[in-house]
Design a protein around this nucleic acid. Structure first.
Length: 423
DNA sequence: TCTGGGGTCCTAGGACCC
DNA sequence: TCTGGGGTCCTAGGACCC
């Protein structure tokens, strides 16, 4: 059997790079992108990192720097990032046939059977994506996914030495990188695990790879056992080219400001339900259970804290926004309490099944073709003219609870009226 | 004052069954 | 007085990812 070889291709500071594509004046400047609601920093350009701005730094700590013009900040613009992500993926597909899109800015590629040397292929991928989309990427090449992630992290950590492309199959390179990669850089090791491992004196990827796998399973979990095996070159995770349908679909958001009225929460829940139902239909699923939850702020709880959730079972599986919203509203009425300042609502669709898989229920009403046509039309119009062009009447155009996005860039690529102009 | 949103997988513990 | 153990299903919670 041929040795497996994979690459992990990862866009550098992706959200920042997207903003720069349309703002060449920012090429060498510190740039940050903020989370929904402009809460905290979720992406930093290398220049912003050098300024000492931490990941997840609260915006109010960075605002002064931005006011003085030392850093350029943007609200997150997912319409733009999603579109540029599609372009990056399509560009890669012109050179590599088998791809697994792992996240908005990362993709695994199967390189088995492609002509050596593979780092030359990596450089071609890098150059073509840069030229066709304007997005810089790094490429890590290795025999397992965990090692490819580590190779990619190393390519980013030592750009002068690697040029952003690193093949970890060379044993000397492999050993050197593992010995110099802190345990936190290993995929699957988060804050908690890293602290426990460090407590045991395991501080590098090399030391984790050297642990006895069975003992890791006993002391930690099967997940960490697999991670250690993968670090030793034994593939435990395979390339998943086919995207499996989601098992749960969630739509949730913090409000731009605290909400006290039932009516405002009802609007938000209707809006989140509509969004979740849209995602449900997009993957061709039906939902049998819906969970709606609300909560007050977690910080500075002057008006008291409260959080609650309601679980609703549908009579028959459905993907109809109106049916789901009736349930969501009933759930909200159950759990709403007066006198609290609510910060967030969430709608979760679970117990999903394929549209074709539903066992006929003698007592349920037959599926209504008119309803299906209505939902399909709704999705087509919103797909063409933008989200919430058509929406349930209870959702206002400019609701009081909508999230803050004070620093939003135009949707250059997906809205005709916000097209990039040159001149 | 202010700290995201959307997912996955695993584990532990309780209920229930034979 | 003795008072099983193994399997399954469900749920909540934890940890991780980007």
């Amino acid at each position: 059997m041929a040795e497996s070889v994979l690459a992990l291709i990862d866009c550098n500071a992706f959200y920042c790079s997207c903003e720069r594509v349309f703002r060449p004046d920012l090429a060498q400047r510190p740039v940050v992108v903020l989370s929904n609601n402009d809460g905290c920093v979720i992406a930093r350009s290398p220049e912003a990192k050098r300024l000492g701005i931490a990941m997840a730094a609260p915006w109010f700590q960075v605002r002064e720097l931005a006011r003085r013009g030392e850093v350029e900040a943007f609200s997150s613009n997912y319409a733009l990032y999603g579109d540029l992500s599609d372009r990056v993926m399509r560009t890669l597909a012109t050179l590599v046939p088998r791809l697994e899109r792992y996240s908005i800015d990362e993709v695994f590629a199967d390189l088995a059977g492609l002509p050596e040397p593979l780092d030359a292929l990596g450089q071609r991928l890098q150059a073509r994506v840069q030229k066709w989309t304007g997005i810089p990427v790094s490429v890590g090449i290795a025999g397992t996914k965990t090692l490819a992630k580590l190779a990619n992290a190393a390519a980013k950590r030592w750009p002068a030495r690697t040029g952003g492309v690193l093949d970890l199959r060379d044993p000397a390179v492999h050993d050197w990188v593992l010995k110099h990669s802190p345990i936190e850089d290993v995929w699957g090791v988060g804050r908690r695990l890293a602290a426990r491992l460090r407590g045991e004196g395991i501080t590098t990827a090399w030391e984790l790879a050297g642990q006895d796998a069975w003992s890791l399973r006993q002391r930690y979990s099967v997940v960490l056992e697999k991670t250690a095996r993968e670090l030793r070159g034994l593939a435990c995770l395979s390339l998943e080219e086919l995207e499996a349908p989601r098992q749960t679909i969630c739509s949730s958001r913090m409000f731009g400001r605290r909400q006290y009225q039932f009516g405002a929460l009802a609007e938000a829940v209707a809006s989140y339900t509509a969004r979740a139902a849209e995602k449900l239909r997009a993957q061709g699923s039906l939902c049998r259970t819906l969970r709606v939850s609300i909560q007050t702020g977690m910080h500075g709880a002057d008006d008291g804290r409260y959080a609650n959730a309601a679980l609703l079972n549908l009579l028959a599986p459905s993907d109809d926004t109106r049916v789901l919203n009736d349930q969501a509203q009933a759930g909200l009425r159950e759990i709403f309490r007066d006198g609290f300042g609510y910060a967030k609502a969430e709608v979760l669709l679970l117990d999903l099944c394929g549209r074709g898989e539903v066992a006929a229920d003698l007592f349920a009403a037959a599926p209504d073709p008119a309803a299906a046509r209505l939902m399909a039309t709704l999705d087509a119009i919103n797909g063409r003219f933008g989200r919430e062009t058509l929406r349930p009447a209870r959702i206002p155009r400019d609701p009081a609870w909508q999230m803050r996005r004070d620093l939003l860039s135009p949707r250059y690529t997906t809205r005709l009226d916000e097209l990039w102009t040159v001149g």
